[in-house]
Design a protein around this nucleic acid. Structure first.
Lengths: 240, 240
DNA sequence: GCGGTCACGAAATCAACGTTACAGAAGTTT
DNA sequence: AAACTTCTGTAACGTTGATTTCGTGACCGC
């Protein structure tokens, strides 16, 4: 079974590189270290991954896949705002359990392309909330706010745990930071539940909902400039 | 003037290293590159900074000093919540104009000790708001939330500008993200202005204010365990 | 059973890195 | 003026990095 052995070795290199990357706290990991730790020769690594870049790209994809899998598996709870909550919690949880991968992903200005799918999933959740009339700001703005705040909170938690490892007791404080910031952003971005808000918030929410629906299904009876202008007006109503 | 020449060369090396660090987008900068770019020999660098670590520590302090100077120069506007706003804006502004230094500071789990003073200044601003009765959550919690969200927003803006450089037009969208997130967190953390809120929020704010005052000036008439228990109760009141 | 492809290891190659002897120049002190 | 300290350049040293060259054993279709 050549294919079996092949996958075994490749996977072993991948796992070893991931472990070394997690242990080395930020400073670079050499291909030599990966080879010796995995018990393979250098040509084996180059046979499977081409070069160092290819190896670490594969490692990044490998480490991020568990997160994407959990995100993709997320089913709607019926309440789109609760779905946003669960998405936030999944994000923070992944960062806390995989700090090395996470800082590689979101701590650098050059966000790897693998993270693009995570962002697409977030846009999907936010879009659903918008179509349900639960947003009071444009969907793109809401997504950016949620993403930025979530990344900031996760990096702060990682920094805390790096500073004082082994402290299990502050898990409560960590959850407090995450949940409070999450609710702060969601409160600023969503409308409570039903149309019980004042007229201003509901008209804003309806403008956002219409905007999201039009984005998903472009109006055929309007020209492109007309649609663009309409979108701008709807944003202005949403900004209230 | 030996001292003059000394400072000149040292400063030139510092500036050159800072520039190379800003240009090299994340990947490491070699001492050789710094030496050739600064027009000095290697022993000069080692004479002034000891080794590579010493050089980059000095560079980090050098790059962060402008930020700390602006923070320290910040005078109160009279409204402690407005002071928090200005502190946030200063933070974001520094990150956008110095993305390389900023990601070095806040993008890594190992936050350099120089950033500790920035955090102390933030704690001072938050403490002032707490003593003025403008906080509805404990001061430490508020500081953590503001810091985490601010870092997240700044990193998001840096990532945006790295993705599409030269785009001056989206400065408005950038400010929108920063201001909206800032107001979202401040709204969740502070109370509006005067004691016009309902009884629950004012009692919470007063509990936080008392807590902050006691932290600054420990009560002499209470034993340490008593004071600890009192603090816990005040936090519970503040949490509502 | 045999040529060919695939997976892998031992050792080597080449460049780049941090760092250091050594030496010379310039100012300061005596 | 001589000795000394400080600052700096030339030229290396030793290490480590990524990557390749060559060779060998195993498996697979014919």
């Amino acid at each position: 079974m050549t294919a079996q052995k092949d996958l075994d070795t490749r996977d072993r290199i991948l796992r070893t590189a991931a472990r070394l990357l997690a242990e080395a706290d930020g400073e670079p990991v050499s291909t030599r270290a990966v080879c010796t730790a995995a018990g393979v020769g250098a040509p084996t690594l180059y046979h499977h991954f081409g070069d160092k870049r290819g190896l670490f790209d594969a490692v990044a994809a490998y480490g991020f896949e568990t997160y994407l899998a959990s995100k993709r598996a997320q089913r709607s709870t019926g309440d789109p705002v609760d779905d946003l909550r669960r998405g936030w919690d999944l994000h923070v949880e992944y960062g806390r359990t995989n700090p090395a991968f996470y800082t590689l992903m979101y701590g650098t200005p050059r966000t790897p392309p693998i993270a693009a799918e995570a962002h697409r999933i977030l846009l999907g959740l936010v879009g659903a909330a918008a179509r349900a009339g639960r947003l009071r700001v444009p969907a793109g703005t809401a997504a950016r706010m949620i993403h930025a705040a979530g990344v900031g909170v996760t990096l702060a938690l990682i920094a805390d745990e790096a500073g004082e490892p082994g402290k299990e007791a502050d898990g409560a404080a960590d959850n407090e930071l995450s949940e409070r910031t999450r609710e702060a952003v969601l409160a600023a971005v969503t409308v409570p539940r039903e149309g019980e808000g004042d007229a201003r918030s509901t008209s804003a929410a309806r403008a956002v909902a219409l905007r999201a629906a039009l984005a998903a299904d472009p109006p055929k009876r309007l020209s492109a400039p007309e649609a663009a202008l309409l979108g701008e007006w709807l944003d202005r109503i949403a900004d209230g």
